[in-house]
């Protein structure tokens, strides 16, 4: 599903040049659950940004579903992103001004899904995430675990092929964290590919494979399954 080869990303300021990705190559197959681990500054976030089509690489190739997307313009990237990729963040990133229902509805609005169908799909996913009773609440009225469930609901409401999760349990206590990991595992079992950046060895054990990074390169790959 994803094939990156020789991927490079360099951040330049006036005086300093930081190499974030240094000729990085790997592949993720459809239906895989992959964890990316490594110390701070190793390039995990940059990798996730590029995989999520939020940023473009300076060099190398990124093939997504058979298409070279490394040099797509913003419009094309946005289009591809909203149809195929769901995001789950450490800090949930829900819009404070929108209710739970409206937050989850947002990707469908941008996809141009009609109102009645939207309602049905949002309700279905809220039900699945067991957060339906909170549909009219605002994010700040929810606990961290509930917020992350909403975020997962939002990530999956448009049935993406790929979910990118960035430290999804980083802001949660262990029981809420386990719940979220279970949700991701369930999604993966239903066929969704998941790439998760994490510091937590415990969380990484939910995945099939761990890619360890250092200084913008992969150092090891552990196959768990």
């Amino acid at each position: 599903m994803i094939k990156i080869s020789d991927l490079q990303k360099v951040y330049r300021t006036e005086e300093v040049e930081t190499v974030a990705l240094n000729h990085l190559s790997f592949e993720v197959k459809e239906g895989e659950f992959v964890s990316v681990m490594g110390p701070s500054g190793c390039g995990k976030s940059t990798l996730l940004n590029i995989l999520g089509l939020l940023d473009d690489p300076d060099g190398g190739s990124f093939i997504f579903n058979g298409t070279e997307v490394a040099h797509f313009n913003e419009r094309k990237r946005a289009d591809l992103r909203k149809r195929n990729i769901g995001f789950v963040f450490q800090s949930f990133n829900l819009i404070d001004e929108l209710t739970v229902f409206e937050n989850v509805e947002l990707p469908l609005i941008y996809l141009g899904v009609k109102g009645p169908e939207r309602k049905q799909r949002v309700e279905a996913v809220l039900d699945k995430m067991q957060i339906m009773h909170r549909r009219n609440h605002y994010p700040q009225q929810l606990s961290g675990g509930q917020q992350q469930r909403v975020a997962v609901a939002r990530a999956v409401v448009n049935n993406p092929k790929l979910i990118l999760a960035d430290e999804p349990t980083g802001n949660l206590d262990s029981s809420n964290g386990n719940e979220v990991m279970q949700l991701l595992t369930d999604l993966n079992e239903q066929g969704t590919t998941i790439i998760m950046v994490t510091h937590s060895e415990h969380d990484s054990r939910y995945s099939h494979r761990i890619i360890r990074m250092l200084d913008g390169q992969t150092v090891t790959e552990n196959i768990l399954v």
């Binding site: 999520g52 939020l54 913003e74 419009r75 946005a78 289009d79 992103r81 909203k82 149809r83 995001f87 990133n93 829900l94 819009i95 404070d96 001004e97 947002l106 990707p107 941008y110 996809l111 939002r154």
Partner: peptide, 16 residues
Amino acid sequence: TGEISIRKVLGAQKGQ
């Protein structure tokens, strides 16, 4: 920026 970024991540076009 938070709100805007989320919208962009979720697929909002510049025009929207």
